[in-house]
């Protein structure tokens, strides 16, 4: 009875759609399994990369160390093992800067052990890029420990930010802009003064270089 009411063409279309649905479901399940395999492969590869980091040969890098007495940044060359991964390189550079802050004869004393949670790279926003310039935005995720150890004041806070930006820009020239987070969250100021809501130009220290008399 029903087969007489429904035209044959519509029956063919219905069965074709059922087959298409089944095929699409099978394809999606396959894609999901592939993504899972990729994630698993990455997680098993990570320890190997860390091991490579420890074993990599020392490289000469330039750190910009602040001086609170004359509001200046001094370029200092250090020889440190540098990993192959760029995110890891940025973290190693900034942690080396923390080591300079901690030194007994530091000109920008800060008692901080782990100051950097992570560093991410993103393409710099198109609006700020010059034509043909493939700049990168570095997002530096500072630790709460660094914020707690940071002396409060316009000068010491600005010097901390400028030293990080200049150090990144000097060793990773593709970095043209820098944005800061604290414990993964946006924060208004570093320690009551320096603005952390804005995005800085990485070479800002070159044009803003203060100086005493």
């Amino acid at each position: 009875m029903i087969s007489r009411i429904i035209p044959r063409v519509q029956k063919y279309i219905f069965f074709a759609m059922v087959v298409a649905c089944v095929a699409m479901a099978a394809y999606l399940i396959r894609l999901r399994n592939r993504a899972q395999d990729r994630l698993q492969a990455q997680s098993t590869r990570a320890p190997t990369e860390i091991a490579e980091t420890a074993a990599s040969a020392p490289k000469t890098v330039t750190l910009y160390v602040p001086n609170d007495l004359d509001d200046s940044l001094t370029a200092v060359e250090w020889s440190i093992p540098m990993p192959a991964d760029r995110n890891a390189q940025a973290r190693v550079l900034l942690e080396s800067l923390m080591e300079a802050y901690r030194a007994p004869d530091s000109t920008h004393p800060m008692n901080v052990t782990t100051g950097i949670d992570d560093v991410y790279f993103l393409p710099a926003p198109q609006g700020k890029r010059q034509s043909g310039d493939k700049g990168e935005l570095a997002v530096i995720d500072l630790s709460g420990a660094l914020v707690a150890a940071q002396p409060s004041g316009i000068e010491p806070e600005t010097l901390t930010l400028l030293s990080m930006m200049e150090t990144l820009h000097a060793n990773l020239p593709a970095v043209t802009e820098v944005h800061f987070l604290v414990d993964g969250q946006p924060r208004e100021t570093l320690a009551g003064h320096a603005d952390l809501m804005r995005t800085y130009l990485a070479a800002e220290g070159e044009s803003q270089g203060g100086g005493g008399r």
Binding site: D71, I154, T189, H193, D195, Y200, G210, R213
Partner: peptide, 11 residues
């Protein structure tokens, strides 16, 4: 009085 000059981003 000793002076240092600089540029900063402060509200």
């Amino acid at each position: 009085i000793p002076v240092t000059l600089g540029r900063a981003s402060v509200e």
